[in-house]
Amino acid sequence: MRSNTRKYRLMILLCIAVTFFVFILSISIGRYSIPFWTVLQTLTLQESVDTTIRSVIFEIRLPRIIAAMLVGAALSVSGAAFQGLFKNPLVSSYHLGVSSGAGFGAALAILLAAGTFAIQLYAFTFGALAVAASFGLSRLVKGSSTLTLVLAGMVVSSFFSALISILEYVSNPLETLPLIVFWLMGSFNAIRIPDLINITPIILVGIAGVMLIRWRINILSMGEDEAQALGIDLKRIIGILVFCCTLSTAASVCIAGVIGWVGLVIPHIGRMFVGPDFKKLIPMSAIIGANYLLLMDDIARTLTTGEIPIGILTSLVGTPFFAVLLWRNKVGWS
């Protein structure tokens, strides 16, 4: 086995086992704590379980937990894919403007006093539009490369950030402004089964698309000339990657708000486990990302009596962690 596949498979199995444990643990903890054994009984649909417990688990905790895992996986996978695509380990899933676009969409919907679903729809649409704008802008440049795409992403992100500021400025400081600010900080608090039904297929399709072509990201990351010499159709593969990543990140942001430092940090942690090969890194990032965001959300809802916005937590944990990685020279560009 020259490709170290056995070690990798073992590691994935181990991580899946850990995920299962974290999953059950997350259902069990909360303001209304449920014993481990009861959680298992409820999940296996045994009749003897109390109906209150059943409704707490199935209607409140489970949707939230599944959403956190999906979003964690989506942000980490697209972050890893973008780092390879842009040949830049400092890039995250939001690099093409999906978060600022979605933030603008959500803020607009909140100003228009729209309902939850409309806010999600606006956020998703404007998130996707922002990426499309970055993409289109980069295509205007002759001989467009991933470098122009990075620059276009920065331009579009800043533009939508400015638009968000305008909306915040004109909004009512007592009613709509707090809503916008809280939305931007991110939360899984309001997620129920219908939200989950809307976003799950979109996120899964996005992740699956990246999964399918993940080995090609290695070749993309070697440089555009090398990738072409190795038979890669650059436009097509970049198009597929950006499309899939946008689907899953836009769907993530539209239900959970802007959760930073996941798509940047998790791929680096993945590399510490399985190395830089995207064939192994993408699945590993998905699993680690799912666990990480789930644990962060557990903390967000249990640490205080209130709810801590999860975007604040991930930044608080992510930044020092990344600083340590930098300091230990583990970021993986040398």
């Binding site: 020259r2 040949k87 070749i219 990351s221 070697m222 440089g223 190795l230 190395g275 830089p276 090969d277």
Partner: peptide, 15 residues
């Protein structure tokens, strides 16, 4: 040529 990510020589060769 150089790479940003520290692929092993075998991983590069198999590309």
């Amino acid at each position: 040529h150089s790479s940003i990510f520290p692929y092993t020589a075998l991983e590069v060769a198999v590309m």
